[in-house]
């Protein structure tokens, strides 16, 4: 009896336990529903947010397109936008913002001069871009004081570019471009000559670069004539430092008659008119050099 009662108590306890457990699970079910509901709601908010953003994007694009059009055609055509007035001002600003960003980016690529005001408008930093055949190369910077007169305070222009005399010859106090344009011409011609030299070394392993200088205004190359295997020394002089084509081409060879032969006369004028790395391709094709 006692055993039975003990059993009875134990089984009662275990029954209670089972009941408690099973009571626990039903409340778990609704919380799973709650969880899912919350998740669905969060997704809905996300979806609405995305939809709104995409809508705004569309309106911005439309606004921007009409802004671009207005700028080119100069005619006011008020666009009909389905934007509530509260946000239209903000949207307009956003569209103008993207337009300004793009225009500034374009200036950066095509203009050649990038300018930033420094020291709260007291100074100016101009960055001059160089490029050759579509490849952008080094940028050079000029730091300038605006007051009392425009003055170059710091620069990283290579020392062999005559910055000082260009500044003296210019009319930079009234028109800064009278300094920047010739300077940019010098820098771009230098960058172009340097790039040509680099291309000669990369593309023409059979041509030996015997001599070159920092300004890349002198270049001595050695060619080999295919059959005779004679060596030809070719010196290119670029006396006009604002150009990237030589002003003088001179050949030297053991075979004294070679420089005066019609083929080499032609090569000489080719080198005067074509960037050297391209001229060498033609000369190779003609079979004049290895």
């Amino acid at each position: 009896m006692a055993g039975a009662s003990t059993k009875g108590v134990l089984s009662h306890l275990s029954l209670l336990e089972v009941q408690a457990r099973s009571r626990k699970t039903p409340p778990q079910q609704p919380s799973r529903v709650k969880e899912l509901k919350a998740k669905a709601e969060a997704l809905m908010t996300q979806r609405d947010q995305l939809k709104a953003e995409i809508e705004t994007h569309k309106s911005l694009q439309k606004l921007r397109a009409s802004m671009d059009k207005q700028c080119t055609h100069e005619e006011e055509e008020e666009e009909e936008m389905a934007i509530d007035s509260e946000n239209s001002q903000l949207l307009r600003l956003m569209a103008r913002h993207t337009q300004l960003k793009d225009l500034l980016h374009a200036h950066d690529i095509i203009g050649g001069y990038n300018v930033i005001k420094t020291r709260k408008g007291k100074g100016l930093c101009v960055s001059l871009t160089t490029a050759y055949n579509g490849v952008y190369l080094e940028n050079y910077n000029l730091e300038m004081d605006l007051k009392p007169t425009l003055r170059i305070s710091r620069d990283n222009i290579p020392p062999f570019i005559p910055l000082k005399s260009l500044a003296e010859q210019s009319n930079m106090q009234t028109d800064i471009r009278t300094l920047l344009d010739p300077l940019s011409q010098h820098l771009n011609a230098f960058a172009a000559r340097k790039q040509q030299l680099k291309l000669v070394k990369e593309l023409h392993k059979s041509v030996q670069v015997m001599e070159s200088n920092a300004l890349c205004s002198l270049l001595v190359l050695m060619f080999t004539v295919p059959r005779e295997k004679t060596a030809v020394l070719c010196s290119l002089e670029y006396t006009d430092h604002t150009r990237c084509l030589p002003t003088r081409v001179h050949f030297e060879c053991e075979d004294k008659g070679l420089p005066d032969s019609p083929e080499w006369k032609k090569n000489s004028s080719l080198l005067m008119e074509t960037p050297v790395h391209k001229a060498l391709i033609t000369m190779k094709k003609m079979g004049d050099i290895v």
């Binding site: 700028c71 913002h97 337009q99 300004l100 500034l104 095509i110 203009g111 300018v115 101009v126």
Partner: peptide, 22 residues
């Protein structure tokens, strides 16, 4: 936007090129 307008004005003057659209 005002700052950018200012930048654009300066850049336009410096480059001597007025851009309408990009």
């Amino acid at each position: 936007t005002e700052e950018l307008e200012e930048d654009l004005k300066l850049q336009t003057q410096m480059n001597g090129i007025s851009l309408n659209s990009c």
